[in-house]
Amino acid sequence: MQKSLKRYFPLFVLPTVAAFLIAFVIPFFMGIYLSFTKFSTVVDAKWVGFDNYIKAFSANTDFINALGFTALFTLVSVIAINLLAFILALFLTKGLKGTNIFRTVFFMPNLIGGIVLGYIWQLIINGVLRSSGVTLLANSKYGFWGLVVLMAWQMSGYMMIIYIAGIQNIPVELMEAADVDGASLSQKLFKITIPMVMPSFTICSFLTLTNSFKLFDQNLALTAGGPAKQTAMLALDIYNTFYGSVGSEGIGQAKAVVFFLMVALIALFQLGFTRSKEVEG
């Protein structure tokens, strides 16, 4: 049995390997190769070396601006989403009436697509701003906070579920022992709950960090980068570079490679950092 399984190993593994190659590995390496070339269709590319990488930063300041905006947005939204999600999770593990309904309600925005959400929030925010005679595009601050609100609203339900799972996994004995010792509510929160949900925090911060950093749909639908590209995030800027001007596809590709490296580095660093804070369960 063992032997024949081994014999047919290629047969079983090849479809998956082929799919993985075609859909991931080949495009990935082709993308890296293309970032060093000038091309308009992917089949005829001319090698230009590091030219695209230099132009990505020097041709105009769009990429740097987008990087700054994205970094700030990521910082604010990671804090906002996780704080909100954790508070919701705390309340919804207290055994209050209607807990299940609330959990469902908070989770639901996560099921709506980003483009739809973007347009809905655009309508809502424009409706609110109408009273002062301006629109979402009047100032990049509106776009920034609009995105933060949108993302917090969409993602906190999902993160809440993860935190709830974490909180429910805390052994009851720990809490009981703390009660016997006369620990206060805040002592229980900071000494038991938070250290014990650190694994959840690792996952949640990873998800929110990467999702915020590579946000695209919501950005496109809410402001499309307006006014004057001030609220364009990295992914949108790459998209605009690639498709907005014929001849700069290579620059767009170079930006994408830089973008990939940044996301990977930040995510690895964050994982290492939060892992070190986890306590033995």
Partner: peptide
């Protein structure tokens, strides 16, 4: 006209002009 990027930036500037910024 150069390309879509140019047009987008031009349009963005017109919007900023209208909004007084």
């Amino acid at each position: 006209f150069p390309n879509q990027n140019f047009k987008d930036k031009f349009g963005g500037a017109l919007l900023e002009y209208v909004q007084g910024s």
